[in-house]
């Protein structure tokens, strides 16, 4: 009886069509088709106006011999190395502190979360003003300690660190909240048992907190790296990729190729380099996670 009913109701393609089809059509047209088209475009030369010409692997060859591309790729890695480890360490520290039973946790949590909800464009504009060499807030604060601050965003040395500081500041609250949730999932009894055995703070941190936090850590690291590879907004607003391309990153170069130089075909291989990077990170992390993530 139930088997029969199940057959009528659940194997009915009418229902499958109603539930799946709207989504699947959108997926085909706006996700799968563009992914494939992007691949196709990478073998063509097109300025949006004239004819589309098939050029084989020329775009890829151009990219390999393009010194700007290598600079931009390095900048992306520099940005990621600058943002991810430091951002994770600071947010983990904050989460551990906030996890101790202290007053005003909610207020602190809200305060650290403010930059997260603010748009990157707004944040980037405020920081651009903070970094102003003569009248900005940062160099004024530094001058109180007798330090002469650099001309942050117009210096090839300091522009990237400036962008990195802004990004860390903006993303801190998000990671902190994830760590906080992870920490609250660790039963207190583990720490009590360790205390009875005479474990110190460091032992408790490295033997209990870190291993039990590893699933969260895994998630945060992957998401942070992937997000860093795709940075664009703050670079576009704060430096426009300058000075002298010192802050130009992959997505910025992709944007320029497509929408400033109108080289549609040349933009696609850059997109695929980005995809490749994300793919590698995901793969490496998935393999490594088996070794160090404790579930």
């Amino acid at each position: 009886m139930t088997k029969k009913l199940e057959k009528i109701i659940y194997n009915n393609y009418f229902w499958v069509a109603i539930f799946l089809l709207p989504n699947f059509l959108g997926f085909l047209i706006f996700i799968l088709l563009p992914v494939l088209a992007s691949f196709g475009l990478s073998f063509t030369k097109w300025d949006l106006l004239g004819e589309i010409n098939f050029v084989g692997l020329a775009n890829y060859q151009n990219l390999i011999s393009d010194s700007t591309f290598w600079k931009v790729l390095w900048n992306t890695i520099y940005y990621t190395l600058g943002t991810v480890p430091l951002g994770i360490i600071i947010s983990l520290m904050l989460a551990i502190i906030l996890n101790k039973k202290i007053k005003g946790v909610k207020i602190f949590r809200a305060v650290y979360f403010l930059p997260v909800i603010s748009s990157t464009v707004a944040v980037a504009m405020v920081w651009q003003w903070i970094y102003n060499p003569q009248f900005g807030l940062l160099n004024y604060i530094l001058s109180l300690f007798n330090i002469t601050g650099p001309s942050w965003l117009t210096s090839t040395t300091w522009a990237m660190p400036a962008v990195i500081i802004t990004s860390i500041w903006k993303g801190l609250g998000f990671n902190m909240l994830l760590f906080l949730a992870g920490l609250q999932g660790i039963p207190n009894t583990y720490y009590e048992a360790a205390e009875i055995d005479g474990a110190g703070s460091w032992a408790k941190f490295s033997k209990i907190t870190l291993p039990l936090l590893s699933p969260t850590m895994f998630f945060v690291i992957i998401m942070s790296i992937i997000n860093s590879f795709q940075v664009f907004d703050q670079i576009y607003i704060m430096t426009g990729g300058g000075p002298a391309r010192s802050t130009s990153v992959l997505v910025h170069y992709l944007y320029q190729n497509a929408f400033e130089y109108f080289r549609m075909g040349q933009a696609s291989p850059i997109a695929y380099v980005l995809f490749f990077l994300v793919f590698i990170v995901t793969l490496v992390q998935l393999r490594n996670s088996k070794k160090w993530v404790v579930y």
């Binding site: 980005l274 995809f275 994300v278």
Partner: peptide, 15 residues
């Protein structure tokens, strides 16, 4: 899921 959104940007613009 792991395809960055920016891979879609140019084809979506053309579409």
């Amino acid at each position: 899921l792991i395809v960055p959104f920016h891979v879609l940007l140019v084809p979506t613009f053309i579409l």
